[in-house]
Amino acid sequence: TLKVHYKYTVVMKTQPGLPYSQVRDMVSKKLELRLEHTKLSYRPRDSNELVPLSEDSMKDAWGQVKNYCLTLWCE
């Protein structure tokens, strides 16, 4: 499951381990945003700071799954 905080919160079913490009595509379609305006980030467990997502950091983000849910933020 993927939970995304935006102006409102959406929850989507997804497969764990998807690459950033696929996750961003899913989120942009769900929120009806243009792909270039979809910026995603996540919060590591040991931090209060949001970390921007990229293809490289997506593996780390999937490591933050809690209760089968990855929580992301969209700007």
Rank of each mutant, 00 (worst) to 15 (best):
L2P: 04
K3F: 05
K3N: 04
K3P: 00
K3T: 10
K3M: 11
V4W: 03
V4Q: 03
H5L: 06
H5F: 05
H5I: 11
H5D: 07
Y6K: 05
Y6G: 09
Y6L: 09
K7N: 14
K7E: 13
Y8Q: 12
Y8T: 13
Y8H: 14
T9D: 05
T9A: 01
T9R: 01
V10Y: 08
V10S: 04
V10G: 00
V10T: 09
V10W: 03
V10H: 02
V11N: 00
K13A: 11
K13I: 01
K13D: 14
K13F: 07
K13Q: 12
K13Y: 11
T14C: 15
T14V: 15
T14S: 02
T14W: 02
T14G: 03
Q15L: 10
Q15V: 12
P16E: 15
P16K: 13
P16M: 12
G17F: 11
G17L: 08
G17D: 14
G17Y: 13
G17Q: 05
L18E: 01
L18S: 09
L18R: 02
L18D: 07
L18I: 12
P19Q: 04
P19W: 10
P19H: 09
P19E: 08
P19K: 08
P19C: 11
Y20C: 02
Y20V: 00
Y20M: 01
Y20S: 07
S21C: 11
S21N: 13
S21P: 08
S21G: 11
Q22F: 00
Q22M: 13
Q22R: 09
V23W: 01
V23M: 04
V23H: 01
V23F: 03
V23R: 07
V23Q: 02
D25H: 11
M26W: 00
M26K: 03
M26F: 06
M26I: 09
V27F: 01
V27E: 03
V27D: 05
S28N: 04
S28M: 03
K29I: 06
K29Y: 06
K29A: 08
K29R: 13
K29S: 10
K30H: 08
K30C: 11
K30S: 08
L31A: 01
L31C: 11
E32A: 13
E32W: 00
E32L: 07
L33W: 04
L33V: 02
L33G: 06
L33D: 02
L33I: 14
L33T: 02
R34H: 10
R34I: 03
R34E: 15
R34N: 13
R34Q: 15
R34D: 15
L35G: 15
E36R: 03
E36S: 08
H37R: 06
H37Y: 09
H37W: 02
T38N: 01
T38M: 15
K39D: 02
K39C: 12
K39T: 09
K39V: 13
K39N: 11
L40Q: 01
L40E: 03
S41A: 06
Y42H: 06
Y42D: 05
Y42E: 01
Y42C: 07
Y42Q: 05
R43W: 08
R43L: 14
R43F: 05
R43I: 10
R43D: 04
R43K: 14
P44M: 07
P44K: 15
P44S: 14
P44C: 14
R45W: 12
R45Q: 13
R45M: 10
D46L: 03
D46S: 09
D46P: 08
S47Y: 07
S47W: 03
S47T: 12
N48F: 10
N48D: 14
N48Q: 12
E49Y: 10
L50C: 07
L50E: 01
L50M: 07
L50S: 01
V51R: 10
V51K: 08
V51S: 03
P52G: 04
P52M: 01
L53P: 04
L53R: 07
L53S: 05
S54T: 15
S54P: 02
S54Q: 08
S54C: 10
S54G: 11
S54W: 03
S54D: 15
E55G: 00
E55A: 02
E55Y: 07
D56Q: 12
D56L: 05
D56R: 08
D56F: 06
D56K: 13
S57T: 15
M58Y: 06
M58V: 04
M58L: 03
M58C: 00
K59S: 14
K59I: 13
K59E: 15
D60A: 05
D60T: 05
D60E: 12
D60M: 06
A61G: 07
A61V: 02
A61E: 09
A61R: 01
A61S: 03
A61C: 14
A61W: 01
W62A: 00
W62P: 01
W62G: 01
W62S: 03
G63H: 15
G63I: 10
G63Q: 10
Q64R: 01
Q64G: 13
Q64L: 02
Q64H: 13
Q64M: 04
V65P: 11
V65A: 15
K66H: 09
N67A: 05
N67R: 00
Y68W: 05
Y68S: 15
Y68Q: 15
Y68F: 12
C69H: 06
C69E: 15
C69F: 01
C69Y: 06
L70M: 14
T71M: 02
T71K: 04
T71W: 02
T71P: 05
T71E: 15
L72S: 08
W73M: 05
W73N: 04
W73S: 07
W73Q: 10
C74P: 03
C74T: 04
C74S: 06
